[in-house]
Amino acid sequence: MGGGHLALGGRVSDDPLAERLAAVEAKLAAPPPRPIADRVLRLLPWLSLGHLLVGVPTLVISLVVAWGTFVQAEATQKIQQASAWPFLGYTTGNYNERGERELYFELANNGVGPALLRAVELSYRGKPVPAPAELLARCCGRAPDAPVRFGTAPIRNIALRPGDAVRFLSVPDLPINRGLVEALDRERWKVRVRACYCSVFEDCWTIDGGESEPVPVRQCPADWTRYRER
């Protein structure tokens, strides 16, 4: 008889109806599809890895930029400080600029910025000397009521511009000072001078004598015997 062929003994029929029934049965026998949430969960590790691959270079770049900004700011600050750096020096001499004999003690700013002179201490043979008259009495035998002529200048809380100097004690070779000048010329090397000064940025240093290098300090010492001009 005409019609399709049924599947007998493993053979597939040519009947379209039978083929459709077989396809439906196959779909019913297949496992159900996974929910969308399962698919998303399976993709999460890969999405996280993608964000990590993008985020790590961005973080590295941000850190590099931040470090570069910090270094640049620090360099700018150092340049500003260097452009206003004072350098105080102490010296003593026995002749002035005019070639006249004169014993003097002097502080000079040899730096490129103003020096704010905060404290100065003089000592003779290891003992602090608070004033010039006492120094001349100790070193050179000057009697308290003996006539003498010497010059002084303020050295506390003053500003020295670059190239400026302050001659805080000078004793000219005058008839009234005979004997005093010779004695001071011998003894001036036993006078110790310490000074503390700061920059306009409040960076401070101390010096101790004429050959010493400035030593950075957080603030000027408070235990010095401050020298005064009178």
Rank of each mutant, 00 (worst) to 15 (best):
M1G: 13
G2L: 11
A7H: 11
L8M: 08
S13T: 05
D14H: 07
D15K: 02
D15A: 05
P16N: 01
L17T: 12
L17A: 12
A18K: 13
E19A: 15
R20W: 13
A23F: 09
V24E: 14
A29R: 10
A29Y: 04
A30V: 07
P31H: 03
R34W: 08
I36V: 13
R42G: 09
L44K: 06
L47R: 03
S48R: 11
H51A: 14
L52K: 04
L52Y: 06
V54M: 11
V54N: 08
V60W: 09
V60Q: 06
S62Q: 11
L63Q: 04
V65R: 07
V65M: 06
V65N: 07
A66K: 04
A66R: 04
A66E: 05
W67Q: 15
G68Y: 15
G68F: 15
I79P: 06
I79M: 12
Q81I: 10
Q81C: 05
W85C: 13
F87H: 14
T92H: 14
G93L: 04
G93T: 03
N94S: 11
Y95F: 14
N96T: 10
E100Y: 11
L103E: 09
L103H: 05
L107P: 03
L107Y: 03
A108V: 11
A108Q: 12
A108G: 10
N109W: 04
G111T: 05
V112F: 14
P114W: 03
L117C: 02
L117W: 02
R118I: 07
R118L: 06
R118A: 08
V120E: 00
V120Y: 01
E121K: 01
Y124G: 00
G126P: 00
V129Q: 00
L135H: 01
A137Y: 12
A137N: 15
R138D: 02
R138Q: 10
C139W: 00
A146C: 08
P147S: 12
V148I: 06
R149Q: 14
G151E: 14
T152Q: 05
T152N: 04
I155M: 06
L160T: 05
L160C: 05
R161T: 12
G163C: 08
D164C: 11
F168D: 01
L169H: 02
L169Y: 02
S170C: 11
V171L: 05
P172V: 03
P175S: 10
G179E: 03
L180H: 02
L180W: 02
E182M: 03
A183W: 08
R188S: 01
W189Y: 13
W189P: 04
V191W: 00
V191K: 00
R192L: 07
R192M: 06
V193T: 03
A195H: 08
V200K: 10
F201I: 04
E202W: 11
E202R: 13
D203R: 15
D203P: 11
T206W: 07
G209F: 02
S212C: 05
S212G: 05
E213I: 09
P214Y: 09
P214F: 08
V215H: 15
P216M: 08
P216I: 07
V217R: 10
R218Y: 14
D223H: 10
D223P: 04
Y227C: 04
E229W: 14
